[in-house]
Design a protein around this nucleic acid. Sequence first.
DNA 1: ATCCCGAGGG
DNA 2: CCCTCTGGAT
Length: 220
Amino acid sequence: MKKADIFEFYRRLAELNPSPETELESVNIYTLLVAVVLSAQSTDAGVNKATRALFATVRDPQAMVELGEAGLKSHIKTIGLFNTKARNVIALSHLLIDKFGGEVPTDRDALETLPGVGRKTANVVLNVALGAETFPVDTHVFRVANRTGLAKGKTVMAVETILERQTPQPFRTHAHHWLILHGRYTCKARTPECWRCPVIDLCAFRPKSLPPAKIPASIR
DNA sequence: ATCCCGAGGG
DNA sequence: CCCTCTGGAT
């Protein structure tokens, strides 16, 4: 996508939602980390439903370890991949206590040493908790970037590299959330709702599937 | 049947 | 690169 169009793309999403935030609920950086780990291949709404009860009493690694894997599983049974996630969250909590003084590390390499934490999760924690200019590429960002032509890449890493390089300064901290919210509510996976898309004229997908709207002269 | 703020292992 | 883990919503 052309440089001027990239700027205009973000400018419009920013105008509609000046300060976008994550829809994952958390009470501190530790619970944020846990929520993001739990969110893999699951909806934010589904994760929130489970974590509301969990985070009411468990808000730090020590409490999580005391709850135990079986106890955690009973809280997250309704979330996909819950066996692996429960194991990872308990292991990750032990590691935070043993190697990081009970605190969540704030650099990407350290975060990625935690079980269940990959590049995308680390990028989300850094962006949401610290306001870092990271570009987590999830299913929505990957789809929106490729479909619209904003950043075409065959892998999530390729897309992240392009976003990191091309995103204009005023939009760098929130770009991730604008793309994800646009993907979740408008540029949906199965049936994108192009009729209410604010950037339809900048989109590479629109011309092929939906012809440009022709408004009859009679109603103009 | 497809998708949801993926990661780890082969 | 591929596959598996997994329940809930649509």
